[in-house]
Simulated assay, not measured.
Amino acid sequence: MTLLRTIERFLRDHNIPPTRFGREAVRDPRLVLDMRRGREPGPRMTARVEHFMNKYGKDMAR
């Protein structure tokens, strides 16, 4: 599954606006909007986004 698809599912599952997600994950509110237009994040940003999604899910389970 691509990163964008994973993010889109995360947004839907957690009811988070794309700008809030980008701001909280990597301090870039345009991240998701830019990815929808073809932006490809590098490996470091991908790791930060994946870490945020994993941590967010664990924090919500508490």
Rank of each mutant, 00 (worst) to 15 (best):
5 R>C: 11
5 R>I: 07
28 D>R: 13
27 R>V: 00
41 P>M: 02
19 T>N: 15
32 V>I: 00
52 F>R: 05
29 P>E: 13
47 A>T: 08
36 R>G: 09
59 D>N: 14
51 H>Y: 11
17 P>L: 13
32 V>A: 00
22 G>I: 00
46 T>A: 11
7 I>C: 02
25 A>C: 05
41 P>Y: 00
51 H>T: 09
36 R>D: 03
45 M>K: 11
50 E>D: 10
37 R>A: 13
49 V>Y: 07
46 T>G: 07
32 V>W: 00
51 H>Q: 15
50 E>G: 06
22 G>Y: 00
24 E>L: 09
18 P>C: 03
50 E>Y: 04
43 P>T: 12
36 R>Y: 01
13 D>R: 10
45 M>E: 13
55 K>F: 05
58 K>E: 13
42 G>D: 11
15 N>Q: 14
11 L>H: 10
60 M>A: 14
3 L>T: 02
11 L>S: 12
11 L>T: 12
9 R>Y: 05
37 R>P: 04
3 L>Q: 01
54 N>K: 14
47 A>Y: 04
54 N>W: 06
27 R>F: 03
38 G>V: 01
12 R>M: 03
23 R>D: 11
7 I>Q: 02
29 P>M: 09
3 L>F: 01
35 M>D: 05
8 E>G: 07
5 R>Y: 07
24 E>D: 12
47 A>N: 09
49 V>E: 05
59 D>G: 06
10 F>E: 08
52 F>D: 04
35 M>R: 07
14 H>W: 10
18 P>T: 05
49 V>N: 08
17 P>I: 08
33 L>D: 14
15 N>E: 10
13 D>K: 10
26 V>K: 09
37 R>M: 07
41 P>T: 00
57 G>L: 08
27 R>M: 02
40 E>G: 07
43 P>G: 13
17 P>Y: 09
4 L>A: 02
49 V>A: 10
33 L>P: 11
25 A>E: 03
21 F>N: 05
50 E>R: 15
47 A>D: 11
19 T>A: 12
11 L>C: 11
15 N>A: 12
57 G>R: 12
6 T>E: 14
11 L>Q: 09
52 F>V: 03
44 R>A: 13
6 T>R: 15
54 N>C: 11
6 T>P: 08
45 M>A: 09
11 L>F: 06
43 P>F: 10
33 L>R: 15
19 T>R: 14
36 R>H: 05
6 T>L: 13
42 G>F: 06
39 R>M: 04
62 R>L: 10
47 A>M: 08
29 P>R: 14
34 D>C: 09
52 F>W: 05
46 T>F: 03
21 F>R: 02
2 T>K: 15
